[in-house]
């Protein structure tokens, strides 16, 4: 991924047990903040044909 120029952090991994709802909330918050900081994924998203 990073080798190809997709920003590190666009892809996140974690390990949460089914009993760890607090950790889940924590990680969702972290992941969202990290990706928000990166800004929109403008590179890889397929551009739709622009219709006038």
């Amino acid at each position: 991924m990073e080798h190809m120029g997709i920003e590190p952090g666009r892809l996140q991994f974690s390990w949460i047990s089914s009993a760890e709802s607090t950790k889940f909330v924590e990680v969702v918050t972290q992941v969202t903040a990290a990706i928000k900081a990166l800004g929109p994924n403008s590179n890889f998203a397929k551009k739709m044909a622009e219709v006038a």
Binding site: E2, H3, M4, G5, I6, E7, P8, N43
Partner: peptide, 11 residues
């Protein structure tokens, strides 16, 4: 050694 933008351009 490249930045993500440079890599993107390279590929």
């Amino acid at each position: 050694a490249m930045t993500p933008e440079q890599r993107w351009k390279y590929f």
